[in-house]
């Protein structure tokens, strides 16, 4: 057990925690916006896996990580567009379509991966890191927090951008109203369907970006079913955060630590089967739900399609 508290171990643990937290953070922030606007976006897992696939394809063929992030976000948005069309515009059941999309895209990306990459399993080179001067020299914390890829800092900045949008802008108010009292928003002369569509598309872009990060920076490779429930964890984060972006960040970091413990413990040579460690993040969710579940508040019109004039 001497290895457990060594500098190397803690450094690897923290670095891994941040890396694992970023996809969850992006998915959670995205889902939060959808939920605020009244759309329970179960399809987020599908958006993530498609973003992961397209993000990897973009980065692999262009050689540019940034282009990969772009294609990943666009991939997520394509799925979100489908979701918005079916569930927001046509008002089909959000859970049914969400599960349908997730299943279909898991299958589709596995299929495409099989024909493209299953012989060679190509990897991307390790992502270059942006080193923040001075801060990066702090022992243990420095390498873990301040030597990450630039997109990590952007994702964390996004938390505060989201907070600003929700509190200080008209769009934030509109989103809130679309989830709590869509009819009131409609009476105020603002298109509910349009507001919700904006929210769902943003979710898609963020989830796709999260997927692309997971594949390109986190793993450096795309394999079928790589997201393994990260999108669903995002839904939990959004639920527990009660509409506050900062809480999504805290939650994501907490789960990041759990996920990172898996690899860090193996590095430290502690002999626990991976299956046991894989249970940790989900166990953490259940414990949090048992403790704080009652306080998870959801918008009033969540999951209910808006139809003008319907009672």
């Amino acid at each position: 057990m001497t290895g457990l508290f060594s500098e190397v171990f803690l450094g690897a643990l923290l670095f891994g925690a941040v890396t694992a937290a970023i996809p969850l953070l992006l998915a959670g922030l995205g889902e939060q916006m959808s939920e605020k606007a009244g759309v329970l976006n179960i399809g987020i897992e599908g958006m993530m896996i498609f973003g992961a696939y397209l993000g990897f394809v973009g980065a692999f063929y262009s050689g540019s990580l940034w282009l990969g992030f772009l294609t990943g976000a666009l991939g997520g948005m394509v799925v979100a567009l489908l979701m918005a069309l079916l569930c927001v515009r046509l008002g089909l059941n959000q859970i049914v379509i969400g599960i349908g999309l997730t299943l279909g895209l898991e299958g589709l990306t596995a299929l495409l991966h099989h024909f493209q990459f299953s012989r060679s399993y190509p990897r991307l080179p390790a992502a270059d890191r942006t080193v923040i001067p001075f801060l990066a020299d702090i022992p243990i914390l420095g390498p873990a927090l301040f030597r990450q890829h630039l997109i990590v800092y952007m994702a964390i900045a996004l938390v505060f951008v989201m907070g600003y949008i929700y509190r200080r802008t008209q769009l934030g108010l509109n989103l809130q109203a679309a989830g709590d009292k869509p009819a009131a928003l409609d009476v105020a002369g603002i298109d509910v369907v349009r507001t919700r569509t904006i929210a769902v598309l943003t979710t898609g872009a963020l989830a796709g970006l999260g997927g692309a990060y997971l594949a390109n920076v986190g793993a450096g490779i795309f394999i079928p079913f790589i997201t393994n429930g990260a999108g669903f964890l995002g839904i939990v984060l959004a639920m527990l955060a009660r509409g506050r972006p900062v809480w999504v960040l805290f939650g994501a970091l907490l789960f990041g630590v759990c996920l990172s413990l898996t690899t860090a413990m193996q590095v430290a040579g502690i002999n626990i089967p991976t299956d046991v460690i894989q249970m940790l993040p989900f166990l953490a969710v259940m414990i949090m739900l048992v403790l704080f579940g009652r306080r998870a508040s959801l918008p009033a019109a969540l999951g209910i399609p808006y139809e003008r004039g319907a009672r």
């Binding site: 429930g229 669903f232 299956d275 739900l289 579940g293």
Partner: peptide
């Protein structure tokens, strides 16, 4: 959780399914 705390069962059952899959593996292997 759903009956007495009103926690959304979509989330909890999904989490329990991830847990259950790993637990089943642990049981088989150990």
């Amino acid at each position: 959780l759903r009956a007495y705390q009103g926690v959304n069962e979509i989330i909890t059952t999904l989490m329990m399914t991830f847990l259950g899959t790993s637990l089943a593996n642990v049981l088989v292997k150990l």
